[in-house]
Design a protein around this nucleic acid. Structure first.
Lengths: 206, 206, 206, 206
DNA sequence: GATGAATGAGAGTTCATTCAT
DNA sequence: CATGAATGAACTCTCATTCAT
């Protein structure tokens, strides 16, 4: 009995995931406004009506999708990996991990940014749950370095944003230039190293 | 006679601009797919039919709009101002000018990026006409500094992209955080200075 | 299962027929270009959107309609009835059957002719599938009569066309004069008899 | 002064003819409902606005066009040529003249029939001014032949319609079969002769 | 009188959503 | 719960008509 119910819940979750995955794929490539529920249904391999058994309407699907991405899909889980890392490693791992993830999900990320910035609620949520914590973490790190004397006196609130901005911007440039540039996944290590060096010596005390 | 024709041509150009301006405003805020031609017409203060006297269809309006923005609307005219500037000024003016422009046009820029990266032709055009020249210019500048011995040996192709990426990413972060951050127009000078310093000392020979 | 599917297929066919019938009615009276999909939907008693679940677009509806009429709606099934009939009966039944059908469907027929002759593909199909076989049949009949010596030497290719032409033209005249003439359905027998006599003695050996 | 006015009137007439000619060409090939005023204007070599200086609206243009065709464009002027002709010549000249004219203007004629039969007023006018007189003439001819004893007793009202119908139908068949049949302009003499013979001996006293 | 840009009513078409099966 | 045919509101686009030049 309980098992039956559990299985049912499990199935429901699976179905919801399946639909969200399809929606992400479709929305990312065509854009929300130009995607149709039929497209999503086809991609998910279910009937159109089924979508409405799991999501109230198209907009609900979008919001659910975005929130799911914000919360659980590796967009903020860097923290786990970042814990207790020494200075250079912190920078390196932050850059490498985020860039690799970014390069792998450019379309999704661009789609996310575009949708998030258009919806006040989503934007606040995103800033609060994702960007905020990430920035806080980096600010804290910089403050620590300054206190230690390893870093010159900088405005950590601005520098942290510059760093996150660099990651975001690099991902976008990668999408724009595609394979016609040194910003290819193949050179990820090289890129990480150059950026890391730039920031490290940029912050370093003279 | 000639005057009459000229006036007519002038009117046509004016009308086209008027429509493009309206389209930009609508598309930027609602997104292309969710904007209607009626919206655009209303914003432009003309009848719906009139739009079709100047643009073949909705997509044509979008493409024309994007191309117009790429080519003439100050997205690349930074070059004129940048000419013959000494090292620190180059960095400062690049950052300040681009950030200010970016902060003033976040929505437009995000809209542009989103549309450009979805259309292969536009993407190529953008890379070739806008991003490419800008990167070339920065690479050249870095190479020069290296040769002069003012800058340590770095991969100028990566660093140039990092710099452009930083600008792009900062603009996006600005849009996301809106007024709840130090990334506000009010602190533009401060921001410019911090970033400039970061890059300058980041590149500086130890 | 199979039954379920069969029922569905049946329903689909019924719906398609229902729509075609409505389209025929509307197109015949208003003309294709002046009919609207809303008209057709109303006549069929379905929503506008439904039309598009069965036909790609308005033109597709027209073409399907015309082809359906050409192929199956009794426009060529005269052959079954004509088989193995002696000379005078052949002529009589041909005339009577075709005239009656024509008088009953003038508008449809005129609409058909007008659309068919404007579309090369339809025209070829019509000639090949409908007019051609009918003419062949009549030519064969005439040739037989000539061989038998019951008929004087005539060019059967021209005479057959004259006979078919007479039927077509009579139908049109009937539509034009409407009830103000002896060409009324009431006098069908009389008309058939006069025409039959005309042709019979027109062909008869002197 | 009078000359000036006359010239003006002349110009006006010319312009009206020019427009009607264009309208006929466009309407005949595309059908009234699918033709646009812009099409007509382009064909006539004038601006769209000009059309409205000569005709109240699109429908007025159609009606004027049809009436013009009915009244003056050779559709009924056969009477002049037919006067005082002896029996066989009457039939021959009627057939040859009407068929030649028909073969040369199939599209126009089909367009005319289609439009006329859809408009009650036009239909009445057509029957009264064109078809009626033509039928009357043929009926009279047949009655005369019967009285003379050259023709067997037939219902001249039906036979006359059959003859006119044959002409109409032959023209339509010609359009449908186009060049793939013996109904080509090249064989006009042959056709005329066969038809004439058919009718003559069909009516002849045995 | 000639013109064609401007217009909006209205056409064709799409698609989110519902609901009977 | 899964489905997809039915639907009409809403969209894109067309085009007859007007009117300032």
């Amino acid at each position: 009995m309980t098992t039956r119910i559990k299985r049912k819940e499990h199935l429901t979750k699976t179905r919801r995931k399946q639909i969200l995955r399809a929606a992400l794929s479709i929305f990312s490539t065509r854009g929300y406004g130009e995607s149709t529920m039929a497209d999503v249904a086809a991609e998910a391999g279910v009937g159109v009506g089924t979508l409405y058994n799991y999501y109230k309407n198209k907009r609900d699907l979008l919001i659910s999708l975005v929130q799911k991405l914000l919360i659980s899909e590796g967009l903020i889980n860097i923290f786990d990996k970042m814990a207790d890392q020494s200075s250079r490693d912190f920078m390196d791992s932050l850059l490498e991990e985020r860039l690799e993830f970014g390069f792998d999900n450019v379309q999704t990320i661009l789609f996310l940014f575009f949708e998030i910035q258009r919806d006040t609620k989503l934007r606040h949520q995103y800033v609060q749950d994702v960007v905020g914590p990430l920035l806080a973490r980096i600010e804290e790190y910089i403050r620590l370095q300054i206190k230690r004397g390893d870093c010159r006196k900088v405005d950590e609130r601005i520098i942290s944003r510059a760093m996150v901005g660099t990651i975001i911007g690099s991902i976008i440039l990668y999408r724009l230039e595609q394979h016609s540039s040194p910003f290819a996944k193949a050179h990820l290590k090289k890129i990480t190293h150059e950026l890391s060096s730039l920031f490290m010596s940029g912050l370093e005390r003279k």
